[in-house]
C-alpha cells in the first residue's frame, strides 16, 4: 500500500524520531512505513491520521489491485 507519510512529515518539519515517539513506535517502524515495506495496523493508521489532522485515506492510498500478503 502506498502512502504519503514521508511527504506529509517533511512538509510539517517533523523528524522520524519525533513522529515515532508521538506514535509510541520505533523509528525503524516509521522508516518502514515510509518506504512502503510495512503496512500499519488500523489503530496506528488512525493515530497517524489524527496526529496530522487528516483522514486515513489522505495518507494511505489503497488501490484494489494491490492486495498483498
Amino acid at each position: 500500500m502506498k502512502n504519503r507519510l514521508e511527504e506529509i512529515r517533511k512538509q510539517r518539519g517533523i523528524r522520524q524520531e519525533e513522529l515515532a515517539e508521538a506514535m509510541g513506535v520505533s523509528r525503524q517502524t516509521i522508516s518502514s512505513l515510509e518506504n512502503g515495506r510495512y503496512n500499519p495496523s488500523v489503530i496506528l493508521a488512525i493515530k497517524l491520521a489524527r496526529y496530522f489532522g487528516m483522514n486515513v485515506e489522505e495518507i494511505f492510498l489503497y488501490e484494489e489491485a494491490q492486495d498483498e500478503a
Binding site: A20, E21, G24, V25, S26, Q28, T29, S32, Y38, P40, S41, I43, L44
Partner: peptide, 10 residues
C-alpha cells in the same frame, strides 16, 4: 518502545 512496537510484533 520496542517491546510495544507493532512492527516488531509482526
Amino acid at each position: 518502545t520496542a517491546s510495544k512496537d507493532e512492527r516488531y510484533a509482526f
